[in-house]
Design a protein around this nucleic acid. Structure first.
Lengths: 225, 225
DNA sequence: GAGTGATTTCATAATTTTGTCACATATTGC
DNA sequence: GCAATATGTGACAAAATTATGAAATCACTC
């Protein structure tokens, strides 16, 4: 399959590299531009860019101008990287046409998460629709889980949780990690709530519930056998 | 099969390229014209153009004039690209003879969706006309639905909704997805309206109403059994 | 315009899920 | 073995989502 192209615009090479490395790890294709003018040129040359990450502060042509140029022709998702000081609230009132704002400094992980979310929202990345392992079949499209031929009923969160486990087979997942992925990044509830969901999952999964192993002092791990 | 030809008229080369690339991806043949005069010339030269995408604002001869010229001889679908400011409502009252209006900036996806829809409407691209499943027969051409031999009466929206469900059997459909497909891409009403239509559909479908399953926290799914 | 049916919105009820708590149980390090 | 800490579990309250009926709005016809 064709890789999804992302245009990263920042005048600092370091920053571009940082972002690029993280995006490449997630199998995106990254195109760089070092200033606003170059960004606009590249954007219209390459006609198949799916998302733009745009630094606000740049020489020659700043991020807002670039955004304006792009928005004159296209609605593709744009993430703006704003400087530390810029209050998000100020930005909120003013509809610039950007889809997301991330203020520097940021965690590349969060950036990648937002990229994924935006692309998913615009249906540009489709994900694997079926995961099968150890007699458990998860069909994401149909939103169903079948264990040894029998379909089991899972709630939304249970489904998401099991999906996360199955996508990370054999990997120990800390509670924090689970919270960040299955719940929102901005969920600040009790981590123990995971325990409750794990309990329910295990009971609904019958024998196969044992596949969800407890890693004492750490979290959980999904493993067949 | 012959490709369907689409004429794209815009004075900005960038915009033409953007639109062209998206249409080519969907296997249309694209012919370009850079101004109104050229558009009219090309249109009458090439006699087998199936759809025209026409920018309103152009030097020499604007979109409205081109449209008038075309309409004097032909009924083929025309999509007008209007500038940001132009209020859609203003346009509505005034029957210009265009089939669709899309205001800039737009998402190329929406454009393509409209193109598909218009061509489908004018039978230039065809689709399956009958869907049959679990004792429900939907005849799209005749716009009828028969359940166990008895025809049931559905309103337009109900019909469209059921069609969408039946075309996506076994797939969980989010409310957002349903809105985008059954309503227009630019419908911004309440997603709860889907619930009401589902309720009516279910009741009109009798026993078979159970085929429309609720997926809690997500949307609906049509599934036989 | 009034009348009709389709569509949408709204308020409320019904339902389901989710999160929290308290207590039981298990694990670890000493 | 014993504290100290972490996890498992059941019950319940809180929160979120969906179903439903009715009213409001819209679109179209006569």
């Amino acid at each position: 399959m064709e890789k999804v192209k992302i245009l990263v615009v920042d005048d600092e090479a370091r920053m571009r590299k940082l972002v690029k490395d993280f995006l490449i790890k997630k199998d995106y294709e990254v195109i760089e531009a070092a200033d606003g003018q170059e960004a606009v040129d590249v954007f219209f040359e390459q006609n198949d860019i799916s998302l733009v990450i745009l630094d606000v502060m740049m020489p020659k042509m700043d991020g807002w101008e670039v955004l304006k140029e792009i928005r004159a022709y296209s609605r593709i998702p744009v993430i703006m990287l704003t400087a530390k000081g810029d209050e998000r609230d100020e930005l909120k009132g003013f509809d610039s046409g950007a889809d997301e704002y991330i203020s520097k400094p940021f965690s590349p992980k969060i950036l990648v998460a937002r990229v994924d979310a935006l692309l998913r929202r615009s249906n540009l990345i489709s994900e694997e629709e079926k995961i099968e392992t150890g007699g458990i079949i998860m069909d994401k499209a149909a939103h169903t889980v079948t264990i040894e031929g029998k379909q089991i009923e899972l709630s939304f969160k249970e489904f998401e949780l099991l999906a996360y486990f199955m996508e990370n087979q054999g990997i120990a997942l800390s509670r924090e990690k689970i919270l960040n992925h299955v719940w929102n990044y901005d969920y600040f509830g009790d981590a123990r709530t995971i325990d409750t969901h794990v309990k329910k999952l295990r009971s609904k999964m019958g024998d196969k519930g044992d596949y969800i192993k407890t890693i004492w002092g750490m979290g959980y791990k999904f493993e067949v056998n």
